[in-house]
Every structure is written in C-alpha cells, then in structure tokens.
C-alpha cells in the first residue's frame, strides 16, 4: 500500500482549549466538581485542603528577565539568558517553582515542565555554561571563586565547582555529570574522573556539612534542571534565579 507522510495544516485548531485562564478554570472546575463528586468527597477534600478540590497553580511564570540586589549580577544573568532565549519552546507551558533542597540554605528555584507521555528529557541543562556564568555572578558580588577547587575535609574530599577558600563560600551542582541522554538526545560526554562526581554517600555528607553550617555552599541538584525537548531557557532561568537568591541571602545575612 502506498501511504504517504502528509502533514496536516500548521494552523490546525482542535477547537477546545489547551489551557484555561485561571478565572475560567476555577469556575469550570468548581461547577463540574459538584456534578461529578458526591458531597462527602468534596467535604473531605475541603478538610484536606482546597488544593484537593481546585488546585491552585503552585508555580510562577518563567521569568522574562531576572532581577537581584546586585544589578551587575542580574545583568550578567540576563545576558546569559538572552543567548538561549530562542531555544525556549516550552516556555509557554512551563513554569518555575521553589524547592527546599538543603536545610539552612534558601529554597532553590526549579523548572516545572509538564510531561505525561514517554519522556522527552534529553539530558540536563548546559552545566558548563551555567558554571561559567555562576563564577561571573559571584564575582559581581565580590566573591572570587576558584573553579574545580580541591576541597578537603575529614569526611569528604572532592573538587567543588567553585569555591573561595578565603571566605569559605562557593557553589556545587550536585549529581551526575554524565546523565543518560540516550537516543532521543545528544550523546553523553566522556565520563568524569571520580574526584569530580560525588557518589550518593558523598552527596549526603556534603549536604550535611552545608546544613551544619560547616560550609557555605549553594547546592543545586543537576537532575532538577532537565533540558526538555530543546528548552534551554527555562532550566537556565530557574538555575540563575537560585544563584541570585543565594547571593542576596548571603548578603542579607552579613556573609558578604
């Protein structure tokens, strides 16, 4: 049989909304909830929290530009973002949210990219770019980081992504340097040396050290910044928001 690949017109309109504006959404769901679920269920849901009944969006829009207490640092972050602005196809449906990653540090910002079928994750964000921009941002706050710094403690020895030994301040992107990218993404790079990639126990010890205030490090988990279907903007924007928030927090607490 001679079937052919034949695209449908690019302006094809399904005729029902992909997403509903928040006001319409609440009315839509409130009315239909009462029709679909019995009163007892809705009463229990109400007891458990309104989010059970009509979950309010817990995320914020992906920022167009970043602001910070240090305008120079914000400008550095926005310049980096501008370079990937054209690669942001997910931005319309993506959002950013906050996540408590390490006790004692401020919450980090993470991308929230909806996905329900298969898996379009093609690795994580550009860590090399992220590290370089982070060093520049720290510098804008007056912190001169040494990259790939060999940090040695009694319970832990590894190369931290960026560290100022004078101030004891730095950052580390925690997790696989070589996440699986498989066949729907780029090829994995060469395996990193063991002193660069922390194993699970070392990660726990590092987090404990930061929680115990023995180290002042911004820690972010690399797998929190997936590069979904080519959207390089959203994860980088979320990551840089975390960096700026951390530095503003250090400053507000008298560490800078």
């Amino acid at each position: 049989m001679s079937l052919r690949i034949r695209p449908i017109a690019s302006d094809y309109d399904p005729g029902y909304p992909a997403m509903v504006e928040i006001d319409d959404w609440q009315a839509l769901l409130a009315d239909s909830s009462r029709a679909v679920f019995d009163a007892r269920t809705l009463a229990f849901a109400g007891l458990l929290g309104a989010s059970m009944l009509i979950p309010a969006p817990s995320s914020a829009a992906v920022p167009e530009t970043l602001t910070a207490g240090n305008p120079t640092a914000a400008a550095i972050a926005n310049t980096a973002l501008a370079e990937v602005k054209g690669r942001a196809m997910w931005r319309k449906v993506a959002s950013v949210g906050t996540r408590a990653y390490v006790k004692g540090n401020p919450d980090i910002t993470v991308p929230r990219i909806p996905i329900s079928f298969g898996n379009s994750m093609i690795g994580v964000f550009d860590m090399k770019r992220a590290r370089a921009v982070t060093v520049d941002i720290f510098r804008a706050y007056g912190v001169e980081l040494q990259t790939d710094y060999p940090l040695k403690r009694e319970d832990l020895a590894f190369h931290v992504d960026g560290y100022d030994p004078e101030r004891g301040i730095g950052f580390e992107i925690v997790g696989g340097e070589r996440p699986p990218m498989g066949f729907s993404g780029r090829k994995p790079g060469p395996a990193p040396p063991a002193h660069v990639q922390l194993d699970e126990d070392e990660q726990k010890r590092l987090m404990s050290a930061v929680e115990g205030k023995a180290l002042k490090l911004l820690l972010v988990p690399v797998d929190g910044y997936p590069n979904m279907d080519g959207d390089q903007y959203t994860p980088l924007a979320a990551y840089l928001r975390s960096v700026l928030d951390y530095l503003d927090w250090l400053k507000a607490n008298g560490h800078l």
Binding site: P17, D229, G230
Partner: peptide, 23 residues
C-alpha cells in the same frame, strides 16, 4: 483520552520516546 490529553496538557514536540533512556 491520550490524544485529548496531549492537547490539554501539552508536553512539547511529540509524545517522545523513552526507549533506552528511561525504558
């Protein structure tokens, strides 16, 4: 339901494939 959901909860460019990656 699969096709409707792919519109109401869009996931990007195609439904993707997990083979060899997360499968």
């Amino acid at each position: 339901d699969g096709k409707i959901e792919a519109h109401t909860r869009p996931t990007g460019d195609g439904v993707g494939c997990a083979a060899g990656v997360t499968q």
